[in-house]
């Protein structure tokens, strides 16, 4: 069972789940706010099509949580706006 860090908190999640499923099984339904209205978003299509579930994974912004399997040690951070608000690197 992989151990990961969600917004600074260490948690253990089931094997073979996606990042979105890991977040949802922790009771988290949204992990992104939109760039114009700042509205919360989470999973919508669940299959990589809609990009609503974007999340910052190991420092890389705009990763689709719904189709990315969790790996041990992953650091998952919720993100705001473009996901690049800390600057483009």
């Amino acid at each position: 069972m992989p151990e990961i860090i969600i917004d600074g908190r260490a948690v253990t999640v089931a094997d073979g789940v996606t990042v979105a499923a890991a977040l949802m099984s922790e009771g988290i339904r949204s992990w992104r706010t939109t760039r114009i209205a700042g509205n919360p978003r989470g999973v919508f299509c669940g299959m990589g099509v809609c990009f609503d579930c974007l999340v910052t994974l190991n420092g890389e912004p705009n990763v689709r949580a719904c189709i990315t399997p969790v790996e041990p040690g992953d650091v998952i951070d919720s993100q705001q706006g473009t996901g690049h608000d800390g600057g483009v690197s």
């Binding site: 089931a14 073979g16 789940v17 996606t18 979105a20 499923a21 890991a22 949802m24 099984s25 339904r29 949204s30 509205n39 919360p40 978003r41 989470g42 999973v43 919508f44 299509c45 669940g46 299959m47 719904c66």
Partner: peptide
């Protein structure tokens, strides 16, 4: 429909089938 908690049917199915959530 843009609230978290609204998703497509396929999205719900994928969570269940793919991750057991």
């Amino acid at each position: 429909w843009d609230l978290p908690g609204v998703m497509t049917g396929g999205g719900a199915q994928a969570l269940i089938k793919g991750s057991g959530v």
